[in-house]
Amino acid sequence: MLNSALINSEIQKKWLQKLEGVKDEFQSHADENDRRSRFPYENVEWLINEGYTLLTLPKAYGGEGATVEDMVVLQTYLGSIDGATALSIGWHLSVVGQLFEQEMWEQDMLNRFAQAVREGALINRAVSEAETGSPTRGGRPATHVTETDDGYIINGVKTFTSMSKGLTHFVVSAYVESLEQVGFFLVKHDMPGVEIADNWNMIGMRATESHDLVLNDVHIPKENFVEIRGAKGKKPNGWILHIPSVYLGIAQAARDYAVDFAKTYSPNSIQGTIGEISTVQQNIGKMESLLLSARHFLWSTARMYHDSGEQIQVWNETSASKVLVLNQGLEVVDLAMRIVGAKSLEMERPLQRYYRDMRAGLHNPPMEDMAYTNIAKSVLGLL
């Protein structure tokens, strides 16, 4: 459980207690799901049934109305339990939070989708493509739509569609030929022509089942054309902090494992445990300092986001959070593995999974070079 002094809302207290109650059960699935590249269906089903997917839906729409800070705290703890579960459900929480906070869709569509979320819907954006790389770089998607009398026909392939087999809704980016603009379309999983390619075979975050989403002549009703890229201007999106939250949690789990190991491992070449060796103590001190730094930076950024009226000052903090947490988190995992030694490479131990999952985080948005460039442009007055 997290330090109680850091918990400052009833939502956090309630959900931390509930997650603590299923910690052992969630972790019992993690190794097998990773080996088989299998989505954590049982974990996500529990989260839906308990109402966790309503966390970032505003109270006015029947949700819990959690803040970005609430989400960050809870996702950090869930990430320490099982990274793949946390990252998967985090995409849903993030999309829902941003959609309703920024009122990105027409009111009628927001109302309809809120009802779907209350009934157990899961959503993620499907924007990455093999041809364009990261969507944050602004490439024009090869996925395209053509207009018909009663809607649109969409064709294309989207990569890195996390939670693909568990999703009920996708927000798909596509080039709208008639407008010569990039639009976003709400696609339901059971529409004819929607397929999951079943081709996710990565070394990290294997259980997210981030397969390709294949769209073959999918008919989209007119009202499901929900966004035009850039139409409402660019705003800070604190909900994207769900990403570093998960990886902070994974780093915390690596630290916890290494500390427990140091307390109990006692080879016959020494008196006592390895926790009494100065080198091990130095590495534990480094791990703790890195985690303290990352945690306070990330959580303070989340608090600033909803405490500030226009949220102008959090552009740089939001970008830097992911870069700082990932890089320091990777160092924490490396130190944990040094403490445990060669045993950290054993497949039966979770440290090797933590390492692989942390590496995957480098390729979640924002990319490091883009984050640094945008921060620099802000400092130089070039944005």
Rank of each mutant, 00 (worst) to 15 (best):
F261P: 02
E195H: 11
A5Q: 12
Q281V: 04
S293T: 10
S173V: 10
K232W: 03
Y152R: 09
T76H: 08
V246S: 04
A197Y: 03
Q27P: 04
A231W: 04
V325N: 01
G97T: 06
I274Y: 15
A302R: 00
S80M: 06
A60T: 12
E64N: 11
E64M: 06
A197R: 08
G193H: 07
P40E: 09
A302F: 06
V96D: 00
T136W: 08
L380E: 14
A360Y: 12
M163I: 06
E348C: 00
H144N: 13
E64G: 00
K322P: 06
Q281D: 08
L55V: 03
E276L: 15
P350K: 05
Q181S: 10
R35D: 10
I153T: 13
R118M: 11
L186N: 06
V332A: 14
A253T: 14
N283L: 15
V314C: 05
V22L: 01
I284S: 13
V72K: 02
F185R: 04
W299H: 12
K286A: 15
R118G: 07
V96S: 00
V340L: 11
H29E: 11
I89T: 01
Q352S: 15
V73D: 06
S300T: 12
Q271V: 15
E310W: 08
V194T: 01
L6P: 07
R137N: 13
R125W: 05
T273G: 11
Q252P: 12
R255P: 09
L335W: 03
G139M: 13
W200E: 00
L330K: 10
W200K: 08
L380T: 10
G138H: 07
T146I: 15
A231Q: 12
E129P: 12
A5P: 00
A116G: 05
L248N: 07
F184H: 15
V68F: 03
Q12C: 08
V172E: 07
A30I: 09
D260G: 14
G381D: 05
S28K: 11
E129S: 11
Q271E: 14
F170E: 07
S378T: 10
L241T: 03
L110Y: 00
L167F: 01
V323F: 04
V226R: 06
P192K: 07
V218T: 04
V44D: 01
S289E: 10
H363F: 13
A302G: 11
M191H: 07
N8L: 08
R36C: 08
N283P: 00
D190G: 04
H242R: 01
F185V: 01
I196L: 01
S344Q: 15
D357R: 05
M104Y: 07
A320D: 08
I203R: 14
G230M: 05
Y354V: 01
L2C: 09
V187T: 04
V182T: 14
R349W: 07
P58H: 09
D307P: 01
A371P: 00
D369H: 04
H306S: 01
V259M: 12
G139S: 15
V194W: 02
V340H: 12
T373E: 14
V340M: 10
N124W: 04
Q102G: 09
I240W: 04
W46P: 04
A251D: 13
A84S: 15
R229H: 00
L215T: 03
E119R: 12
P40L: 10
D198M: 07
I375E: 11
S210I: 08
M202W: 08
G361N: 05
G21D: 07
D212C: 09
V246W: 02
S308D: 06
K59Y: 02
L55P: 03
T279Q: 14
